[in-house]
Design a protein around this nucleic acid. Structure first.
Lengths: 377, 377
DNA sequence: GAAGCGACTTGGAACGATCCAAATTCGGAA
DNA sequence: TTCCGAATTTGGATCGTTCCAAGTCGCTTC
């Protein structure tokens, strides 16, 4: 029966201490009502060999239709459950994919995970979940733990500050990795959003509405996605010949709460901007709230653009103009990508850039003094 | 190397068709740079036996300190990766737990999943993810697929309309199941929220504020959690001797969007209620939006109470009064519970009810005409 | 110097499946 | 009837680990 073991074999830098040892003989074993059924039980039950049952289970055309029917009936009758671990051991294959993200409570990652699982489940694979909470140490531990389950591939959104070499060491040379969402030093398969273009589109949208003083609001300076979005913003300003004042770049944690708190800093700049490109939707929604608290209103006297198009974006007051990246579809895409590599490991590693799309809603209004400007759409 | 197989062995009612067969001989195999390292390689590398290396990996006190050091050095040197599937096969144990939820994009479940994974990762277990999308068929397929990976336990939030017998058949008699969040016919371990008490507290809070016409807003009639919450609401009304008009019970899908759309139906009742207990926070937030669209404002001329205390609840305008259930902590609790059962399968199955807590914020105001009433807190 | 005793190490069997080469059965052709 | 190839079935070896009974070693004790 199932035996719970507290120790985790140390294959990396982790070292065992003696006190972790649980003597397998003294550890309690379940009273087994019946042992788990195996191929042999089924085979015996319907008078064929192990090998034949195995062929039936795998849908081989080699078995006679009548035999197949008999075996399938027996399988159903006794409630046999396939042991995929044993099969994978012998066949040197795997039917799971590991997904490592920062935090599922971020709706963006939750949607992404749902997309991954959806695509994997469709072909009978399971998703092994791991979350790092943005901690590099936890990431190493999680990767070490997951890789021991021999996933066919790993989809990784690296924690901030990850070291590519450490990741490579933890994963080993045999499991394909797809890096998602963030940069990681080294040669990896990538699936990244076109952050730069997205932010550029958002900024150009605001410029087109007549804004001249545009802030870049929120996000951590050192996060790669934030850097890229900021670059897109700066690029659009430069092309339009507009000022890119550093005081209009406000750094916040990428959460609603922090963003709401920092609105004062934004409005204290002189001259005050009339619009903001936000690091992501959470920040943008926080900015909207902060504006309300200070007697302003997004979409009326201040224009706000977000990034991600999380479900809340369409439902906020006012509905948020944002850059859509369709996380669920991205999840499916990531799964497809890693499956493709598993099918043919020889394909070249590549960086795949996800196109983004500007969704104009009501939070982006023309500037108060832009009566002469026409609204572009 | 890894071989991708499209077919899913049919152990349940699923039947194979011949066209699914992929001949293992013709399916492409990876060019193997080096075979994966095994215990034997490590053993040979440092001149001890397989068994000794195995003992080192498991932190046994039986091995000499010097030997252990030599083996650990070799393990690190060659980058050996433990094959947990093989170990589990021989030891008849497991180090994974399956988690089956409706939909990760629901922030409540995402938080719950994060909690489960957090608790499991702490003891070196991994989470196998499955989502049903509220489909009973998908649930059967997902369970069948997960159970083949021999999880040590399953945490299941059943899809609406699940049949306990089918679930039992899919899971088999050897894997402990913890049912979460919803009722399922049959004898199961349960972890359920105290929906009734929560809704009662919410309703009593509104009654205490002076409301006399209180609606129950949102949710599906046939969902067990909705039924329980409605019962709590009715109970509170009955105790206070207030009318429980059926026209004040509005059914909606449990989403923000649907809830916002149905506000018209709520305000069309005669006499119109002054407050609403909502099925959950998503519905409550939708209600708040819908009120704004109709010239009313929650927390000013209409009181709204939600359920769940999702992160958005504290950040909405106005902040939402709600019933907190701490999904992340619930996730941890669920994991602990299933681990406890694995340690000792003989413990009696039980129903564990999660206490809930009313969080009063600003969306629940006294009724407009209640000038004489004092506000209770 | 033989026996006894810890402390440590070890080789073969086993877990439940797949692979593979060989065996068996089945029809039809010679 | 006999033979042949195609169709179908099969038993042993094997995947990488753990279990277990038995082994080796060094040291004390009589």
């Amino acid at each position: 029966m199932v035996v719970l073991r507290r120790t985790v074999p140390a294959t990396g830098s982790q070292v065992h201490t003696r006190k972790n040892w649980i003597d397998p003989n003294t550890s309690m074993t379940a009273d087994k009502p019946r042992a788990r059924l195996t191929l042999n039980d089924v085979a015996r039950g319907c008078g064929v060999s192990r090998a034949t049952v195995s062929l039936v289970l795998r849908g081989s055309p080699l078995v006679h239709a009548e035999t197949r029917a008999r075996v399938e009936a027996e399988i159903r009758r006794v409630g046999y459950i396939y042991n995929r671990a044993a099969a994978n051991l012998r066949a040197q294959s795997s039917s799971s994919v590991a997904l490592v993200v920062n935090d599922l409570s971020n709706p963006y990652f939750a949607e992404f995970a749902a997309g991954v699982d959806e695509a994997l489940a469709a072909i009978g694979f399971v998703t092994l979940l791991g979350s790092t909470g943005e901690s590099v140490q936890r990431q190493q531990a999680v990767l070490a733990s997951l890789v021991e389950h021999a996933p066919a591939g790993i989809i990784l959104s690296p924690a901030e500050g990850s070291d590519g070499a450490s990741v490579a060491r933890a994963v080993g040379p045999h499991v394909p990795v797809l890096v998602f969402n963030r940069e990681l030093d080294g040669a990896w398969d990538y699936l990244v959003m076109d952050n730069r273009t997205g932010a550029r589109l958002a900024t150009e949208h605001l410029i087109g509405l007549g804004h001249r003083r545009i802030a870049f609001y929120g996000g951590h300076r050192d996060s790669s996605s934030c850097r890229e979005r900021r670059d897109g913003y700066l690029q659009a300003l430069a092309v339009a010949g507009l000022e890119a004042a550093p005081r209009w770049r406000i750094e916040t944690a990428p959460t609603r709460l922090e963003a709401a708190r920092q609105v004062g800093a934004l409005l204290a700049t002189e001259p005050v901007p009339t619009a903001a490109v936000c690091y992501n939707d959470a920040v943008a929604l926080g900015l909207q709230l902060g504006l309300v608290a200070r007697g302003r209103q997004a979409g009326v006297d201040f224009a706000v653009v977000g990034f991600d198009d999380i479900p809340e974006a369409a439902m906020s007051v006012p509905p948020l103009t944002t850059v859509a990246t369709a996380p669920r579809a991205r999840g499916r895409q990531a799964a497809e990508r890693i499956l493709a590599r598993m099918r043919d490991p020889s394909i070249a590693i590549a960086r795949q850039t996800i196109p983004v799309q500007l969704i104009a809603r009501e939070s982006s209004c023309p500037p108060p003094d832009a009566s002469g400007n026409r609204r572009h759409e």
